[in-house]
Design a protein around this nucleic acid. Structure first.
Lengths: 172, 172
DNA sequence: ATTGCTGCAAACGATTTGCATGAGG
DNA sequence: CCTCATGCAAATCGTTTGCAGCAAT
C-alpha cells in the first residue's frame, strides 16, 4: 500500500475539519442555523476530489440520506460558494459544477467537446495576468474563469467525423 | 472630423462583405438556403463593435423588420457561430452573448460583477498556453474561454458595501 | 416540386421560489 | 417561541423544438 494514500486521507480529513469551521463561522456571522442536512452534504462534497454537478452530488447525498431533497443540495452548494468553500467550475454546457478549493492548487480544466471528459492543468501565468490586467484597468479582481476546449486523443482515434456539422453546444 | 472614422467605416464595410461571402459559401456547401431575414440579421450583427445578447440583437433587428421573430434570431446566431462568423462570449450569467471576430484581434473580457460592464483586454500569452497545454495532453484544441471578474473603480467608489452577502450569480 | 426557412406556441431543462411544516437556538 | 431550514410543487427564464404555411432553389 503506497504511503501516499495516508497523506491524502489526512489532507482530506483536515480539509473537512477546516470546512466545517468555516461554515460554522459563516453561519454564526449571518445569524443562520446549523442543520444535519447541510452537514451531510458538506461531508460528501468535501470527500470528492473532482468537481461534480449538482445532480451528481444529489445522487451521492440521496444514497446516504434519501430524505434530502434536490432543492436543499442546490441551496447548500450556493451557501458553500458564498462562504468560499466551493467554487463553480464553468463548462458552458448549461450544468453547474462545483469543486472545493481547500488544499488544492489553483488549476484549470481542458474539456473534450466530444466525450465531455475533462483534465486538470496548471498554468500559474494566468494568475499573473489577472493581477496585471486588474491593475492596468483599475479593477479589484475577484476571480477568473479559464478553460480550453478541444478533442482528446481517444475521441479523435475513435471518430472518423472530421467535419462536425454541429461544432459546439450553445449556452453560456 | 477625425480620419479614423473613415478607416473604421471601411473596415466595417469590408467585414460585412466578407461575412456575406462566408455565409453564402457555408449555406451552399450544406445545401441550405438564403433568406432575407438572415441577411437583415447579419447586417446588424456585423455592424456591432461590441458583443451583444440575443435579446439585444433581437431588439435591433425588430426595429428594422418587426416581422422577424425571436426564434429566427436565435437560429441565425447559431448558424453564424457554426460557420465561424460569430463566437460566443461567456459571462456565466445565463445569457448567451455573441460577437463577430472579423477584423478583430483575439481579446478577452473583464467583467464588473456589480454593474455588469465589461472591458476588453489583450493577453497574447493565453493563446500560447492553449497551444502548450493541448500539446502536453494530446488534445486538439479548438478554442478557450477566459474572463476576469471583479469590481470596477466606479462601483467601488459608489458602493459602501465591502462585504457582499451575495458575491456572485450562480449559473453556468 | 421539393425542401429549407419562418413565426408562433408549446416544450424543455436547469435552477429558483412560495409555502406549509419541522427543527435549531 | 421565534426564526431559519426543509421538501415539495409550481414558477422562472433562456433556449429549443414541432408544426403549418411561406419562400427559395
Amino acid at each position: 500500500m503506497p504511503e501516499r494514500r495516508v497523506d491524502d486521507q489526512e489532507d482530506s480529513r483536515a480539509a473537512l475539519e477546516e470546512a466545517k469551521l468555516i461554515l460554522r463561522e459563516y453561519l454564526a456571522r449571518l445569524g443562520l442555523k446549523h442543520s444535519t442536512q447541510r452537514d451531510t452534504i458538506l461531508n460528501i462534497f468535501m470527500g470528492m476530489r473532482e468537481h461534480l454537478s449538482t445532480e451528481e452530488l444529489y445522487g451521492l447525498v440521496k444514497k446516504q440520506d434519501p430524505a434530502i431533497g434536490y432543492t436543499t443540495v442546490y441551496r447548500a452548494l450556493k451557501l458553500f460558494a458564498q462562504c468560499g468553500l466551493a467554487s463553480e467550475v464553468e463548462f458552458h454546457d448549461g450544468v453547474a459544477r462545483y469543486e472545493h478549493g481547500l488544499n488544492r492548487r489553483t488549476h484549470h480544466h481542458m474539456v473534450c467537446t466530444q466525450c465531455g471528459e475533462s483534465i486538470e492543468f496548471f498554468a500559474p501565468e494566468i494568475d499573473e495576468i489577472e493581477q496585471r490586467i486588474g491593475r492596468d484597468f483599475h479593477f479589484a479582481t475577484i476571480r477568473h474563469s479559464f478553460q480550453i476546449y478541444g478533442t482528446c486523443e481517444a475521441c479523435r482515434t475513435k471518430s472518423t467525423v472530421r467535419y462536425p456539422l454541429k461544432p459546439r453546444q450553445t449556452r453560456t
